[in-house]
Simulated assay, not measured.
Amino acid sequence: MKIDLKGKTALVTASTGGIGFAIAKGLAESGAAVVINGRSEGSVAKAREKLAALVPGATLHGAAADLASDAGVDALLKQLPAIDILINNAGIYGPSDFFETDDATWERYWQTNVMSGIRLSRALTPAMAKQSWGRVVFISSESARNIPADMVHYGVTKTAQLSLSRGLAKRLAGTGVTVNAVLPGPTLSDGFADMTKDEVARTGKSQEEVAAEFVMAHRPSSIIQRAATVEEVANMVVYVSSVQASATSGAALRVDGGVVDDIV
């Protein structure tokens, strides 16, 4: 299968590193023009330069904006060309006991993880529908279905993304615009590396070894028994963004290594 996205323009939110950067790279390698987004001009410029070196000849745009507020989303929208593919990847996570998680934290997670995707989808999908083609992908998490006891606030936002993607897919039925959610499991992202760097330094083990031990300790139902790479997650996103994925919409597509223990 050859995925060809020439002539399409994709926005990948929070794409200066980690899963977002891997998605941007995969889309660029498939021929799409890509808008890289991050919270600062510096991080966006650095990521754009890095991606240009990895994918020579790629058409890349940069758009700095913090998507945790309506003002930030508006600032991003003013910088965009016409968008055919929207990857709602912006999100934050971190452990916090339910009884110690205050309203301000809940609101911050809701605005960043849920409302950013709502606002961008509301603004960008009408033009996609008008041209009878478009792709919207929400980067959710296996935590949407396997709610972590130490991150209830995070899990709730990821579950909300599943409802949002399914409902929006139904709202756009028959338009040629597909809407899906992709659910990564434990992944060797920049955030995961930061979380485990002390353990890597203390033990002398590789990042992959520490990640595999984490998976088996905290996600023992994993079938692959390791963390996924960011590229493995990006592969699913690139496919569901493609012309070939035209019959896939309203789906929750797991790239969780089999952590969620069911058959659907």
Rank of each mutant, 00 (worst) to 15 (best):
I3S: 00
D4N: 12
K8S: 07
A10P: 06
A14I: 12
F21W: 13
I23C: 09
K25Q: 15
K25I: 08
G26S: 09
L27F: 09
A28D: 13
G31S: 10
A33P: 10
A33H: 02
I36A: 11
N37Q: 05
R39N: 01
R39I: 04
R39C: 06
G42H: 08
S43F: 05
K46Q: 15
A47S: 09
L51G: 11
A53K: 15
V55M: 08
G57S: 04
T59K: 15
T59W: 03
H61N: 10
A64K: 00
A65R: 07
L67D: 10
G72F: 07
G72D: 10
A75Y: 07
L76F: 05
L76D: 10
L77G: 03
A82W: 05
I83N: 02
I87H: 07
A90R: 03
A90E: 02
G91D: 03
I92E: 09
I92T: 11
I92D: 02
F98C: 11
T101Y: 04
T101G: 06
A104G: 04
Y109V: 07
W110Y: 15
Q111G: 04
V114Q: 04
M115Q: 13
I118T: 11
I118F: 15
I118V: 15
S121W: 02
R122H: 14
T125A: 11
M128P: 03
K130S: 13
V136P: 03
I139F: 07
E142W: 06
A144G: 07
A144Q: 04
I147H: 04
P148D: 06
A149L: 14
D150K: 12
M151T: 10
M151K: 10
L162N: 12
L164H: 11
L164F: 12
R166D: 09
G167W: 10
G167Q: 14
L168F: 13
A169Y: 06
K170A: 14
K170M: 14
R171K: 13
A173K: 08
V177Y: 07
T178R: 15
N180V: 01
V182E: 00
V182C: 02
G185D: 01
G185W: 08
P186E: 08
T187E: 07
T187G: 08
L188T: 02
L188H: 02
D190A: 13
D190R: 14
D190L: 04
G191S: 04
G191H: 00
A193P: 03
T196R: 11
T196M: 15
R202M: 12
S206Q: 02
S206D: 06
Q207P: 11
E209V: 01
A212W: 01
E213W: 03
E213A: 15
F214D: 08
H218S: 13
H218Q: 14
R219S: 10
I223W: 07
R226P: 03
A227Y: 10
T229N: 05
V230R: 12
V230L: 05
V233F: 11
V233W: 09
N235T: 08
M236C: 11
V240F: 00
V240N: 01
V240G: 00
S242H: 01
Q244P: 05
A245Y: 09
S246N: 13
A247W: 13
T248Q: 05
S249M: 05
G250A: 00
A251E: 14
A251G: 07
R254C: 09
V255I: 11
V259Q: 06
V259H: 07
I263R: 12
V264M: 14
